[in-house]
Design a protein around this nucleic acid. Structure first.
Lengths: 343, 343
DNA sequence: CTGAAAGCGCTTACAG
DNA sequence: CTGAAAGCGCTTACAG
């Protein structure tokens, strides 16, 4: 494998000059640049990543932390983020951690070990950021949850307006005449002082606000059932919810995966969607449009979330620009899973 | 951040001795080991990955190449592989490439750039391995497709017995009385000289063998429709297949994702599963058990595939053992999507 | 069992 | 604009 010294020898220049060419520095003569670039191409020379990392004391990798197991939405976000990173000539390291793990604690250790040049958090719970994100001195971006209220230095965020979208779901169910509406998914414990603390929980927050403003009552003990972001979670909690509170006519599942489990649960309870019960999901994963019935849902723009997040991160790695907190527009998908409640 | 020199200074030993302790070499006195380990712990010292990589001229990372976009089965395999890698104290780099990309070409470049200590291929098409895997001198493992017939040096594989499992699907449909059976998914072009060349294609091969042995006819032009491994692919190809060949009573979709698209297509065509048409999938992704109806499928043991693959790879990285080609047992899931054909 | 020293492949002040 | 040289943080023959 050719090294920078080989290229230097073959071109008749010093390794310093070759290095300058590789790094696109301006202070190189046109002639030297041409000659050296030719040889680099001819030899198919690739600089040794570790040597660069060591010298610059920053790796060329971006680390991606995915919080949540078997989470289809995050998987498709991950895929898009990775592709975008590669298209920009960088490499990505990935860590999957459990929904209940502390992603910032993982990140702190990872930064020390791998010295990534940037960090991408997919899914996130705000309290862990509050607790020790200050220990992280690497440009970072939180995708799919807003970090705006945190004001962490070095942490941008790109997300759907979960609160507004949650409210939109409710407006839709209310406009179809539903007055007994249940909510499925998330962890109530994740709230402290009543405020939800991660992206998905804000969906609930927005939904509740809308209900309140419309004068429709909601009782957490009766009308809500929490669960993990999985089909099995949705299945179990939907069963519990409907058995306890059979007069519900509409359900908001705070993720599509949960909704898919819920459809199955309703079917097992002998309830038809939407004739007997209406259902709205959240995320817009591919399967949502292949369920029977097709799921009404909020489609998050994963393409834009991924691209904007990576671009912001790469720009901040180079130019030390201020962090950004941007809401990316979502789309309401009507589907076939909502109808007017029966008399 | 502490370096090995700091630890050396603080312990009163040389960096050489500290290095030996870090690398668990035997030729260190008990006293030195204790003392140095204490200080390492106290300082929370972590060796610099790039320096090690540079020195050893092999990175501490394993690169994972995932071939296929938005592929739920591979995503869950990826997640398990990554977790297993981390549990063994290693790190993982990930590249997602398109179903139609050449994973070995990507790997060749990646090896040169990143010098991973090992390579994991998730999903794979045999022809690309045949073409230029010989350029790769890093221990590798192919997961979910067998590389046995390739005999590539340095390439192990762990997979479901796709051919046998495909035959099992057919046996099941035949035993329920089906005689007009269609197959959905994969690319016929991927075969050369009539033999399929990637894992999923072997499923078709096994299915056809079984039909032949049972004296049931199958006409590729009429009874088969290829497509990508996506719900949309399954949806479109199922529609085409049933419109062209409406007398089919049973369908084998060679992945669950394809089957989920097919269920939706049948519903749009006014066909009920399984009353009007029976359907069997393949893979055993989580959603398969939450469809309405629950999908009959072959459940691949992703947990075992992931664990065995990573363990074999790590062992071969250290001990230079021979490669292995192992078939991991699958499980037939009955589901609710198969019935006897109507009179 | 331990230390002194070379060197992995780069980058970057420094000097000219 | 270019080169000589130091040094990033490790590992490992070599010598004792």
């Amino acid at each position: 494998m050719a090294t920078i010294r080989d290229i230097a020898r073959m071109s008749g220049y010093s390794t310093g000059t070759v290095s300058r060419v590789i790094n696109h520095r301006a202070d190189v003569s046109e002639e030297a640049r041409r000659k050296i670039e030719d040889i680099i191409r001819e030899q198919n020379y690739q600089p040794n990543t570790s040597a660069r990392t060591l010298r610059r004391s920053a790796s060329s990798e971006i680390s991606i932390i995915v919080r949540g197991n078997d989470n289809t939405f995050l998987h498709s976000l991950l895929e898009k983020v990775q592709i975008c990173i590669r298209e920009n000539g960088e490499n990505a390291n990935v860590q999957f951690i459990r929904e209940t793990d502390d992603e910032v604690a993982v990140a702190v250790e990872l930064v020390q070990n791998l010295r990534p040049k940037g960090l991408v958090f997919l899914g996130g719970s705000i309290p862990s950021f509050r607790k020790e994100f200050s220990k992280i001195d690497v440009p970072s971006v939180l995708v799919s949850a807003s970090a705006e209220r945190l004001g962490c230095e070095g942490l941008s965020s790109f997300s759907t307006d979960d609160e507004e979208a949650g409210a939109a779901v409710m407006r839709m169910l209310l406009s179809r005449g539903h007055r007994r509406i249940g909510i499925l998914g998330g962890y109530r414990e994740s709230s402290h002082d009543g405020l939800p603390e991660d992206g998905p929980a804000f969906r609930i927050w927005g939904a509740l606000r809308e209900l309140r403003e419309s004068g429709v009552s909601f009782d957490f003990g009766r009308d809500y059932e929490g669960c993990s972001f999985s089909a099995e979670g949705g299945y179990q909690s939907a069963k519990r919810l409907l058995c306890r509170t059979p007069d519900l006519t509409g359900i908001f599942a705070i993720s599509d995966t949960i909704a898919i489990g819920a459809i199955r649960a309703f079917s097992d309870l002998g309830l038809r969607v939407p004739e007997d019960i209406s259902l709205v999901g959240f995320d817009g994963i591919a399967y949502a449009q292949y369920c029977v019935p097709r799921l009404a849902t909020i489609r998050q723009d994963t393409e834009a979330l991924a691209r904007k997040s990576v671009e912001d991160l790469l720009m901040r790695i180079i130019y030390d620009r201020p962090t950004v907190h941007e809401k990316v527009p979502y789309q309401f998908v009507n589907g076939e899973s909502v109808a007017r409640p029966r008399e």
